[in-house]
Amino acid sequence: MDTPSTKKRIFVVDDESGFTRLLKLTLEHTGHYIVKEENDGTQAWLAAREFRPDIIFLDIVMPKIDGGDVAQQIRSDPMLARIPIIFLTAIVSQTESKSEIGGFPFISKPVSLEAIIRCITEHIGE
């Protein structure tokens, strides 16, 4: 078991609370991650400043605010600018050759736990 200090800090922004809750449960169940979920996109930036994540999973299609705008807010905050952001989206097919949206990597929902972990490892290491 990693100590809390060595655990990767994962920030998930998605209006689907069912999804974020299960993702948090599943990832934290592995014992390697601390997951912070945020279901209101407008609160994502402040929550991120508070949580200081190692990586952010960001849903694109959300009520009130678009994932892209949230990504902009975070990127323009010097404290958060270097944190990798992975888009999560239900409206893009994984089979499309593009693996980036607006310069950000993305994962198509539904996504397997395995794919999430592979993605985290790829961006911030074991």
Binding site: E16, F19, L25, T26, V61, A90, K109, S112, L113
Partner: peptide, 25 residues
């Protein structure tokens, strides 16, 4: 239409997937 359908269907699917993956572990 597709985007709407995808959004409305894939999100629940994502939850199901997460659930299945969790249960499988």
């Amino acid at each position: 239409l597709s985007a709407g359908v995808a959004h409305e269907v894939k999100n629940p699917l994502a939850i199901l997937k997460m659930g299945i993956d969790f249960l499988s572990g």
